[in-house]
Design a binder for these strands. Structure first.
Lengths: 155, 155
DNA sequence: GGAAGATGGTTTCAAGTGAAACCAATGTCA
DNA sequence: TGACATTGGTTTCACTTGAAACCATCTTCC
């Protein structure tokens, strides 16, 4: 006779299932309404918040893989949504910023994203959002300490 | 001037980042210690809890893709960790159960998984785990209502 | 100055993924 | 009975992914 184990109450599992569900939902909306992938939307959001950022700044901020950022940037550039900011000095760096078109897209997405998020919490007990956010931050920090770092290795 | 938008406080984003971090952490441990993928471990957990289950029962319980379950089952079978339960009647069904070796692995993993989960919450404010679990359940239900269902289409 | 190494970013490659096509067995309804 | 749809499960295919290899630039230190 084995130890009873309830997968449903196992947190890494619940976290993954819920996250995948939500990601799928949002990915579909972003794709339908704006033709953007999640990675691309993240890059736009970071550039919108920070004004200017290099690929590795985006990586540091979002935890996305190097290659993933590179591909998202290529996609956005192909559609003219970002521009390269001239940078005298270190020529390895390639600081990016939103183009006018990029900023227009950002301005269009932000309210939609907020509305979707609000809809997601509409029927839930008040305080859920805040509690969840705190818990997630704490967990993420802890997981990092425990050695989950994306790109553990060098480079 | 655009609306300020704080990606860090955007829940779908935080959820995804945290979930990926945790998944990576656990995936690494399962792989190192038991040579299992997360999908395989989930199948084992379901079979452990339910005794017997068909592939689509596993799919219904875990939300995993049809193909993913099929591949996980193939992997487990190749290693002799599950067995097919004879089923007179509907010959499309292929009920599965843990083999003796499979049960031994389950018995070995469960305490490790629990310990890892406990370690993840060790330094967090008490109540975090329960609050998080409730919130995640509620969000998952809500996302499903909003149309995030895996395998929306027929079949 | 110039090795040796670090850093930013792109590309390649093998593996994993989900959607759809597919196969086999049942169910349904005339 | 026999079309026709349904269901359980596997396989194929095109696409995505992350790790590692790579290229270019810059830094360090002799």
């Amino acid at each position: 006779m084995s130890t009873a184990f309830d997968l449903d109450a196992f947190l890494p599992y619940r976290l993954s299932v819920t996250s995948n569900l939500v990601s799928r939902l949002f990915a579909r909306r972003y794709a339908e309404e704006f033709g953007l992938t999640i990675a691309e939307w993240r890059v736009i959001a970071v550039l919108g918040a920070d004004g200017t950022a290099t690929a590795s700044a985006v990586r540091a901020r979002t935890g996305m893989d190097k290659a993933k950022v590179s591909r998202a940037v290529a996609g956005l550039e192909a559609r003219g949504l970002i521009r390269h900011v001239a940078h005298r000095g270190d020529r390895r760096l390639d600081p990016l910023a939103l183009s006018a078109a990029g900023r227009r897209i950002l301005d269009a997405i932000v309210p939609r994203a907020r509305a979707l998020e609000a809809e997601l919490f509409a029927t839930l007990p008040p305080g859920t959002r805040e509690a969840l956010e705190d818990a997630l931050h704490a967990i993420a920090r802890r997981a990092t300490v425990m050695g989950a770092g994306p790109g553990d290795g060098p480079d």
